[in-house]
Nucleic acid binder design. Structure first.
Length: 575
DNA sequence: GCCGTTTTCGGCCCGACTGTTTTCAGTCG
């Protein structure tokens, strides 16, 4: 055994790189198998090294897209930290395949040619070769290719990778708003990963129909947000925005809009499965429509295309290329929780701890956001950095809430807390204090580096506490910022069921729970709440991101307790 | 290399665009 711990990230990256080498060698079918495996590994929440420790090869083999050969490779990686198959490829092709192919217009074959002809191994090698003009001298390449390479390197150096959806969606919606009022525009939609509500977004894809394409393209490319126009044609344009992302717009025929929407919404894996499914039904699906023989049978709307395939319409959030098509065939896709269906928010911080507004200000902001109740969940005493509440202040806060509730019409403020779970699993407030509250929520903020079993035990102990109703941001992660603590989420979900504790889907930049565990919880009948975790009046918009996350985890309205009225909610959390 | 409601063997997504070609390979979404 080795001390090197190999992460899923690393394994997926290795598989992606193997796929590229195989593509360069023109190997058929295998590259895709490695890519699918890599994609599936990335979306796992649990580390493969842990799964392997827990139940060996069996757990690995269950992952879709991973068969006998890849199980062995993962085993080798987990045990030794190395993979001979990969090392051999690397000996044969000692250049940075991943880096080179991250440049636009350079794929595996071009990268291999560059290595063979010019001994180019890195992006720096490539840059100096392009500047010297030696790329244009390679047969099959020319001056234009060389110029594109330089442009691609520039772009790569300037771009900052994938951003969390919270930052991107408002920008995209703002752009859509500016475009939809242009004369002639009949449809304009966000597609791609943004429409699927993925946690992080790489670029902004827009689709449109219009009777005046010229005008739309002109406006799109001259928006104040546009820093540089990268490409412009009669039906397509690509730009770079001032906020450092790339975006494009495609103008489509209204008669093909649905098929195109499916195609450009993705995911790629979903599209592949959908097309394979069409083939089995003796049909052919492309962005232009669903074709049988030479006849287009469906294209105008997404629903028509799915229906013509004999499938239930599949919501964008679950188009991931897993089991959604199989279930759509059996009409077993549940109605996912609708946006705008939350009536309350159970995690709201105020200026009593680390929020920036008063209880009343937060209540009015929530009311304005069409909510009818919120729970005030300021931190507790051991979180001194947030000015957490001790028992005395909590009781004072309760009095203030009582006063406020008398004043407010058609709105209720619940007395609550985000009570810290201490290292030993005990709570940061006494039972006497907790008893005065309408809702008791708990979470972990300290001693994050505990060993997995101990952390799991610590949390389960807190969940067992008879007064506890909700466990906040269960994994402790923040997207793009930090991973969660080590925890056995399966056990936490089972404990939630056993002790009647709801799990939070946190809509802030935590996006915690992960969609895999949301689905697992839903399947087990564990109840969820979706919260904004807002610390300021404008952040109730986080609720929508929470709903998006819950939808990606196949949650329905019935699974989410704060879709209920306040009285029904309070009744539902009772132990 | 994976997978199975036509299959444990024989399949494996589709079309547009670009740049380099003189009929197409490579990349992308």
């Amino acid at each position: 055994m080795t001390s090197t711990k190999i992460t899923n990230q690393k394994i997926a990256k290795l598989f992606d790189e193997i796929a590229l080498y195989l593509r360069a060698e023109n190997v058929q079918f295998k590259p895709q198998a490695y890519e699918i495996a890599a994609e599936n590994i990335i979306s796992l929440e649990e580390e493969l090294s842990d799964s392997y420790k827990k139940c060996g090869k069996k757990c690995i083999d269950e992952i879709p897209g991973i068969g006998k050969s890849m199980v062995e490779k993962i085993e080798e990686l987990v045990q030794t930290g190395r993979l001979k198959y990969y090392d051999d490829l690397k000996k044969k092709y000692p250049f940075d395949m991943l880096a080179l192919t991250s440049i636009q217009d350079i794929g595996p074959k071009t990268a291999l040619t560059l290595f063979k002809k010019l001994k180019i191994k890195t992006i720096d090698d490539l840059l100096s070769a392009a500047e010297k003009g030696s790329i244009a001298k390679i047969p099959s390449m020319g001056v234009k290719t060389q110029r594109n390479v330089l442009r691609g390197i520039q772009f790569l150096k300037a771009s900052s990778g994938r951003r969390i959806i919270h930052q991107v969606l408002p920008l995209a919606q703002n752009i859509v708003k500016k475009l939809q009022n242009i004369s002639g525009v009949t449809h304009i939609d966000i597609a791609g990963s943004l429409r699927r509500k993925k946690e992080t977004i790489g670029d902004i894809d827009l689709l449109a129909t219009t009777t005046n394409p010229k005008q739309l393209i002109k406006t799109f490319t001259s928006l104040p947000e546009v820093e540089q126009v990268l490409e412009v044609g009669p039906k397509k344009a690509m730009v770079r925005y001032t906020f450092g992302m790339q975006g494009d717009i495609l103008i489509l025929k209204p008669s093909e809009y649905g098929a195109a929407l499916i195609h450009f919404t993705g995911s790629k894996e979903h599209n592949i499965l959908l097309r394979e499914f069409a083939i089995k039904k003796k049909m052919k699906l492309s962005e232009h429509g669903l074709v049988h023989g030479k006849k287009i049978i469906a294209a105008k709307t997404e629903k028509q295309v799915y229906t013509a395939l004999g499938l239930q319409e599949i919501p964008p959030e679950i188009r991931v290329g897993a089991d959604e098509i199989k279930l759509a065939q059996k009409h077993k896709i549940p109605e996912l929780i609708p946006y705008d269906s939350l009536k309350g928010d159970l995690q709201v911080q105020t200026d009593w701890s680390d929020g920036d507004s008063s209880i009343e200000e937060m209540a009015l902001a929530a009311k304005n956001y069409r909510l009818s109740y919120i729970a005030i969940t300021d931190h507790t005493q051991s979180l001194t950095i947030t000015n957490g509440l001790n028992e005395k202040r909590l009781l004072e806060q309760g009095k203030e809430i009582d006063k406020l509730n008398k004043k407010l019409k058609n709105f209720r403020v619940l007395k609550s807390t985000e009570c810290d779970i201490k290292k030993d699993g005990s709570l940061d407030l006494s039972d006497r204090a907790l008893k005065t509250l309408d809702v008791v929520s708990v979470s972990v903020h300290s001693n994050r580096k505990m060993e997995k079993n101990a952390m799991t035990e610590r949390i389960i102990k807190a969940m067992k506490h008879p007064f506890v109703h909700i466990f906040f941001h269960p994994s402790g992660r923040i997207v793009n910022i930090r991973d969660g603590y080590e925890i056995e989420m399966d056990k936490i979900i089972k404990a939630a069921k056993e002790y009647h504790v709801a799990l939070e889907v946190n809509g802030s930049e935590r996006l915690d729970l992960h969609e895999k565990y949301i689905r697992q919880a839903v399947e087990l009948g564990v109840k969820l709440v979706i919260n904004s975790d807002c610390h300021t009046q404008t952040h109730f918009t986080n609720l929508d991101f929470g709903i998006g996350q819950a939808r990606r985890g196949w949650a329905t309205k019935a699974d989410v307790l704060n879709t209920k009225t306040v009285d029904a909610f309070l009744k539902a959390i009772k132990k």
